[in-house]
Design a protein around this nucleic acid. Structure first.
Lengths: 187, 187
DNA sequence: AATAAAATACCTATCACTAGATAGATAAAA
DNA sequence: TTTTATCTATCTAGTGATAGGTATTTTATT
């Protein structure tokens, strides 16, 4: 296994991920990627046959990396409050500090033009995320999964909505206002 | 003033609005609009010189219509609880019943490719919306504008985030879960 | 170890198509 | 006779994708 192979393949994914975050599915081309990586567009097609393949792979990798980063919510050695706060802060970092949108928010807003494999990967991601937050809230609030699911839905909606509104209003302080309920409740 | 002129002009806006809601800024063309209206793409350019002009006009019209629909938040004859609930239900109707995204959410997610006039109209819309909810909450919770702004930010984030997550998870029930806090608090 | 075969990773060139936009003609209405 | 609203035709600049070629590296066979 040559090094070059994997370097290029993942470089393409890195670049594609950035482009998606910054402009969505429709706003970058194979030529854009090629230029950023330093190869020709035909070579990008060599690694990923279609745009759908590429983006589905990027989304799958994102989900994978994301789930590896999430601590086990059932690990009693970890404080549930701390787990949740780190989760919120991680999101805030992307949105406020880096001024980005989250990959999944961008792709979701492009859903009408997404190839099905991408939609499928997207759904997987949301499931992983919702499940994790739900499990943490079961511990934190000592409630049933059903009740925790409701709270988890509220938190995720707040987070994703905050990211939209920070962008739409050009006001980074929107994030903290939108999340203040959760930070007060758990800090 | 001929009737035809205004019919076509607003028909173009109607069609453009639908296209934006269904696919965002980048996923429709002057030809698509022309076909839907029943004219040629060059004729669309006659009414709106550029795509940016057209979409900025659509967004401005949306804000205008929206603000006309909003009852006066200071009108003491109107129940504040009812105002807020109607606001939430109106949003839910679009998202869950019609399965649409809101115009502003779509455009915000396309922000990196939006011409500046569109961004400006977008900011105006969010300001109108946030101000209105804030005023209603001042009455409802008997708090300062500052505190009401925080609550308003939370509610708007919840609403917009819920719309994203309903789409991303293919689960319309997400909306009610995400908004349950607000419905419980005020019904 | 030497050589043949195959896979890898790139290239050039091009296809069919769509985009936003413009020039200039035409017909009807003011 | 000018304005309005439409048309046809076309431009330039992109798009995703493919065909087919060329080195280089791996693997298999002698």
């Amino acid at each position: 296994m040559s090094k070059a192979k994997f370097d290029t393949k993942s470089k393409i994914q890195d670049v594609a991920e950035r482009f998606i975050i910054q402009g969505g599915y429709g706003n970058f081309s194979f030529r854009d990627i090629a230029e950023a990586v330093g190869i020709k567009s035909a070579s990008v097609h060599y690694h990923y046959r279609t745009k759908g393949d590429l983006v589905a792979t990027v989304m799958a990798r994102y989900t994978h990396t994301f789930s590896l980063m999430l601590p086990d919510p059932h690990n009693e050695e970890l404080d549930a409050k701390h787990l949740l706060n780190s989760f919120i802060d991680g999101f805030k970092d992307k949105i406020v500090t880096n001024g980005d949108m989250s990959l999944c928010t961008m792709l979701t807003s492009n859903k009408p033009i997404l190839p099905e494999p991408v939609c499928d990967e997207l759904a997987v991601f949301y499931k992983v995320k919702l499940d994790w937050v739900t499990q943490v809230l079961v511990r934190l609030e000592q409630v049933t999964e059903e009740e925790a699911l409701i709270k988890a839905s509220q938190l995720l909606a707040c987070l994703h909505g905050a990211s939209i509104l920070v962008q739409g209003t050009n006001d980074p302080t929107f994030f903290d206002r939108a999340l203040s309920y959760w930070k007060i409740a758990y800090v």
